[in-house]
């Protein structure tokens, strides 16, 4: 038999400069996310201050070597509160995205894969959910569940279910028409095996990209809920709560708002960049 040559790789080099620039952004974004994750996992490594115990004689200190982001009205170290706040931000956002992703995937997958009446019913459900602004939906859910961090996560998750469902439904529709799905039936697969063995894995990349994007949106929405008082109560170290608390002192002690705010913005921008990189296939 004739030996086969491998795929020509020449195209990989086609647009090298553009790739590099994008990679640079992606690299910075990945670094930011790594730092944020490290803060969430081992906050103690990054600061020796307690996020809760204030030193009352050290109120409202401006950012300095001793207090990187300054101190608040209780004399608490703002940097420590930002670092310790990362865990709740990341965890609640994860829970939110998890809920949205799981419920959304299930609805979207079932709707797209089984089609017909199932799709008609679930499709209308998705439409109804999409018609309600996500943040409003989150507020409605959190008000009916009661104000707590977990409920805020559930609320934000619930508000993103439709977004995931819509994407995965269309992905499932696309994938189920591909020849390899038919081939899977031909070699003896049943519906469930095909659904979870072939359709689901082939929707994962776009879902992953959306998940990363939604993760950033979840961080914003959860913080916004906390800012409005629907999330963590004081004295929790929570980004949204910190901004809400700091806004009363914005004129005189701007770092109380800017420090957590900038961290939040950078995190979300980094997540957006990662989403771009993933959906463009790196």
């Amino acid at each position: 038999m004739v030996a086969l040559s491998t795929v020509p790789r020449a195209r990989a080099r086609l647009s090298l400069p553009a790739l590099t620039l994008r990679n640079a952004y992606t690299l910075v974004a990945a670094l930011i996310i790594l730092v944020v994750l490290a803060w969430a996992i081992v906050p103690g490594l990054f600061t020796s201050h307690s996020p809760y115990a204030g030193i009352t004689r050290e109120q409202f200190q401006a950012p300095s070597g001793a207090h990187l982001f300054g101190t608040d009205q209780f004399g608490r170290d703002v940097f420590a509160r930002v670092v310790y706040g990362t865990r709740s931000a990341v965890l609640t956002a994860l829970v939110a995205v998890g809920i949205g992703l799981f419920a959304g995937s299930l609805i979207g997958l079932v709707a797209g894969f089984f089609g017909r009446a199932v799709d008609a019913v679930l499709g209308r459900l998705i439409d109804v959910l999409l018609a309600i602004p996500a943040f409003l939906l989150a507020v409605i859910v959190v008000v009916s569940l009661g104000f707590a961090t977990v409920n805020a996560a559930i609320a934000v998750g619930a508000s993103s279910v439709a977004v995931f469902a819509r994407l995965i439904r269309s992905e499932a529709l696309r994938v189920k028409g591909l020849p390899f799905v038919e081939s899977a039936y031909l070699v003896g697969g049943n519906k469930l095996q095909v659904l979870f063995g072939h359709v689901l894995p082939n929707t994962y990349r776009s879902v992953l990209a959306l998940g990363v994007l939604q993760f950033g949106i979840a961080i914003i929405n959860i913080s916004a809920l906390a800012f409005l008082g629907y999330g963590s109560p004081p004295p929790a170290a929570d980004w949204g709560l910190q901004v809400a608390n700091g806004k009363d002192f914005l004129y005189r002690y701007p770092w109380l708002v800017y420090a957590p705010g900038i961290v939040m913005v950078l995190t979300v921008l980094a997540l957006n960049q990662l989403n771009k990189s993933i959906s463009k296939g790196r």
């Binding site: 008000v143 104000f147 707590a148 008082g229 629907y230 999330g231 109560p233 004081p234 004295p235």
Partner: peptide, 10 residues
């Protein structure tokens, strides 16, 4: 050693 938990309500 006493825990005071604050809860939000509107």
């Amino acid at each position: 050693g006493v825990k005071l938990t604050l809860k939000n309500v509107d």
